[in-house]
């Protein structure tokens, strides 16, 4: 049971981080290969504030999210005007730089040894409530002027500008929102494992999150949620295969990406409307 609960908690934390990637990659069509660094910033800032400076929990969490957003602003300001492929390079570099910074400021962060003795505050209810709130915020964002304009600039940036969309500002806002979400997932992570080390936040995590968004279907929030659950649980299910685990995982991902190029859900979302349409279609389909 404990094992089940911990898997659910880790899935929830990953989902909040992936939501950040969904905003950047799924909605806006940019690649952030350093997204895990924002998780590190969230986790470390809250941990250091509580452990070393005895800051109460709520302000510490708020400050951690603000720190992640400031970092997003720092990366975002110069990069939003760059071409899409350069953005992935800059974010990759930024992510690795943060990991290096954490490794080398041992007097605050404990360096490669990591930081331990963080209070365990993340419980199942906390994670579930956090997931629901974050998901609600992202759903609202997607279905507002922000989400529409993001999708517009993803499909045709020149046309988007010609419709009066301030694409740089919009990219920056999306970047900040994503940074806040990912930062918060880092806070939850630190408060659950009670231990943080820089190596947990390298580019491999960011790449995994990007894979999750693609497997789910870049446009579809429902797909992103499903893929997060599927791909976080998959390695656990595959434990029996011991060293073949990673290989099987890769094969499954490749199969999905090859045979469902639009991802599991494509552009579809789970809503009352699509459900009705789906049921209607199965009824009509002549077999």
């Amino acid at each position: 049971m404990d094992y089940f609960v911990s898997t659910v908690i880790f899935t929830g934390i990953a989902l909040i981080g992936v939501l950040g990637v969904y905003l950047i990659t799924g909605l806006t069509g940019l690649f952030s290969l350093g997204q895990a660094a924002f998780m590190a910033i969230g986790g470390y800032v809250s941990a250091v504030l509580i452990r070393n400076y005895n800051v109460p929990v709520v302000p510490a969490v708020a400050l951690a999210i603000v720190a992640a957003m400031l970092a997003a602003l720092l990366v975002g300001l110069p990069t939003v005007r760059l071409r899409r492929d350069y953005i992935s390079l800059v974010t990759l570099g930024f992510g690795e730089a943060i990991v290096a910074l954490l490794n080398n400021s041992a007097n605050i962060t404990g360096g490669a040894m990591g930081i331990s003795g963080i209070p365990q505050l993340t419980t199942l209810p906390v994670v579930l409530v956090s997931v629901v709130v974050c998901l609600a915020l992202v759903i609202l964002y997607k279905n507002s002027k922000y989400g529409r304009q993001c999708l517009a600039l993803r499909s045709d940036e020149l046309a988007a500008k010609s419709m009066g969309i301030d694409v740089y500002r919009l990219k920056l806002i999306t970047f900040l929102f994503a940074g806040a979400l990912t930062g918060y997932s880092g806070v939850l992570f630190g408060f659950y494992t009670t231990y943080l080390e820089p190596a947990a936040f390298n580019w491999i995590i960011s790449a995994e999150w990007t894979i999750i968004v693609f497997v789910g279907g870049v446009n579809s929030l429902t797909g992103t949620v499903l893929a997060t659950i599927l791909l976080t649980w998959l390695p656990e299910f595959l434990r029996f295969a011991s060293e073949w685990r990673v290989a099987i995982y890769c094969v499954i991902v490749l199969l999905i990406v090859n045979y469902r190029t639009a991802g599991i859900m494509g552009e579809r979302e789970l809503s009352p409307k699509t459900l009705r349409r789906l049921l209607g279609r199965t009824k009509e389909a002549p077999r």
Partner: peptide, 13 residues
């Protein structure tokens, strides 16, 4: 046109 958006959303955008 914006491919990821519906006809209505294209105009709303």
């Amino acid at each position: 046109l914006f491919k990821g958006l519906s006809v209505l959303e294209n105009v709303m955008t």
